[in-house]
Design a protein around this nucleic acid. Structure first.
Lengths: 112, 112
DNA sequence: GCTTAATTTGTCAATTATTGACAAGTTAAA
DNA sequence: TTTAACTTGTCAATAATTGACAAATTAAGC
């Protein structure tokens, strides 16, 4: 899968023969906005990933991978980050996990 | 460098013997907020990367790498993304670059 | 051609998130 | 116990994102 997340959604949609309006309804948004999402002019909201997965019967984990990879790639491209960035990111994920095990949960804003 | 970006800033600051107030002044923010940044309770604003680099005489590219890697890692950790995500991200960066060469600039919101 | 559905684009108010600022609290060193 | 350093809480101001609708364009069928 080399396409952007928007292109990916469009692919899924067209493949199943849905119109924008139909899919937008499933996802609980406006067809105009779905169009923008498909064309990379708006972001897909993370909270709709589950609905997207169930609509197309996709593995939610794979979908998350596509989704976040897309976000990272866009940032990298936009800010012209070195490829090294992803290597360092991997180290940092491991660091966070290790610290987490040692010290207990690191809380993010959206956790209670 | 395995630490978070906040820990990294603190390291730099303490190493040079600066107080929060001193560094905060250099960066144009409040010492209370810098404290939060160092402790991971607020995000460092991308627009201050240059100032941070010049204050500590750091290579801006390396700093960017640290900075964005930190952001990606936090998201990965927060949403429990598979490690695969970073591999896919790399593919997608290449895809974006290729598409860009073929079709001309992809514009982001903050470009004119 | 004409008609109608599908898609895209523009705009904007409303919601939501982020920031800057300051006060009040705690910790640490002398 | 005083003074500086740091941390935490709060909140208004600012900024970013979203949802919604109208209008414009494109595509398909007749």
């Amino acid at each position: 899968m080399k396409a952007t997340f928007g292109e990916y959604i469009k692919q899924l949609r067209v493949c199943k023969g849905f119109t924008l309006t139909q899919l937008a309804f499933q996802l609980g948004l406006d067809s105009a906005n779905l169009s923008k999402i498909e064309n990379g002019k708006r972001e897909f909201d993370e909270k709709r990933l589950e609905k997207l997965a169930s609509t197309f019967n996709l593995d939610i984990e794979k979908l998350k991978t596509e989704y976040f990879a897309d976000q990272f790639a866009k940032k990298m491209y936009q800010y012209n980050c070195s490829p090294e960035t992803l290597v360092v990111a991997e180290e940092k994920v491991n660091y966070l996990k290790k610290v987490n095990v040692k010290q207990g949960k690191i809380k993010f804003e959206d956790e209670k």
